[in-house]
């Protein structure tokens, strides 16, 4: 049976991709950011996931305003790096796992999550930057990827509760897949940032760290944070953090934190990164 062995959350700021592609990851500006991912790169080498379910949002790259899917799952064979206006990032193609992806899609739909199915698309920095942060610059990505795109741009975006519940359903779907696979789920985007209007540049170290604390806790309180709180406290683009809840929802009630990193700033954004492992709970004695 396939199983979810870990959850990873990370910001996906496009400038991090530029730093990797231009070899600036150890300079004064980027050094402290990338140092916080060194542990994870070594850990990933040991963990060797077969597949990553990568929760991200498209930034007007594959989707424009013609179609706005709330939850979309990539069931394709492979995905190219998108040209976001300055040429595609020089990264390997992302290899899908259509069998697992279709299994998850079908299971989710039966579980009453009405997913949009994507067979062909390019993937932008939202998906490729986390791969670079976790795996560096390999010839080929070391695992398959099931992209899961969430609308966090056009309101209403999905509620925290719905995202958490989707994570729970993804876990059930993965655990009903017969092949023996080591599956990780990643939630990306955030943390606090605002890219628009006179309030642009807002960051909130205190709130972000409380959010990280909530993800570490043995409860699901974070699913009830309303959109207005993300907007007020973390800037208009901080809402991306609802995608972290899909990851957290897939791990079950109890988790162990194996790594945590926070850094301000990267361009307009607060960088947050956490690695969690699900903890098997003993069933209460009868």
């Amino acid at each position: 049976m396939a199983r979810i062995t870990a959850g990873v959350a990370s910001s996906h700021v496009p400038l991090l991709g530029v730093a990797v592609d231009q070899g600036k990851t150890r300079d004064d500006y980027f050094g402290p950011i990338f140092a916080g991912y060194d542990w994870t790169r070594e850990w990933e080498k040991r963990e060797k996931p077969d597949v990553v379910i990568l929760v991200y949002n498209d930034h007007a790259s594959a989707f424009d305003m013609k179609i706005v899917p709330t939850f979309a799952i990539g069931c394709g064979e492979r995905y190219k790096s998108a040209d976001e206006g300055w040429g595609p990032r020089p990264v390997p193609d992302v290899i899908g796992d259509p069998d697992l992806a279709w299994h998850i899609a079908q299971s989710l739909i039966l579980d009453e999550f009405d997913m949009t199915i994507i067979n062909e698309m390019d993937v932008d920095h939202g998906l490729t930057v986390p791969l670079s942060m976790m795996f560096g610059q390999p010839e080929a990505w070391p695992c398959k990827v099931v992209p899961l795109a969430v609308n966090v741009v056009t309101y209403p975006v999905p509620s925290g509760n719905r995202c958490w519940a989707l994570g729970e359903a993804i876990r059930r779907a993965v655990e009903s897949y017969p092949e023996d696979l080591n599956v990780q789920i990643w939630g990306t985007g955030g943390m606090s940032h605002q890219l628009q209007g006179p309030r642009a540049g807002l960051l909130n170290r205190e709130w972000d760290n409380k959010f990280l604390d909530m993800l570490e806790a043995d409860n699901d309180d974070a699913r009830w944070i309303p959109h207005i709180e993300y907007l007020r406290e973390t800037g208009s683009e901080g809402i991306e953090m609802v995608m972290w809840l899909i990851m957290r929802g897939a791990l079950g009630r109890k988790v162990k934190t194996v790594h945590r990193h926070y850094h301000i700033p990267c361009s307009n954004t607060a960088i947050g990164h956490i690695v969690l492992e699900p903890v098997e709970e003993e069933t209460a004695p009868a």
């Binding site: 309030r199 907007l231 007020r232 208009s236």
Partner: peptide, 8 residues
């Protein structure tokens, strides 16, 4: 929310 236009 001050100085913010939410994309409704």
């Amino acid at each position: 929310i001050p100085g913010t236009r939410v994309y409704t």
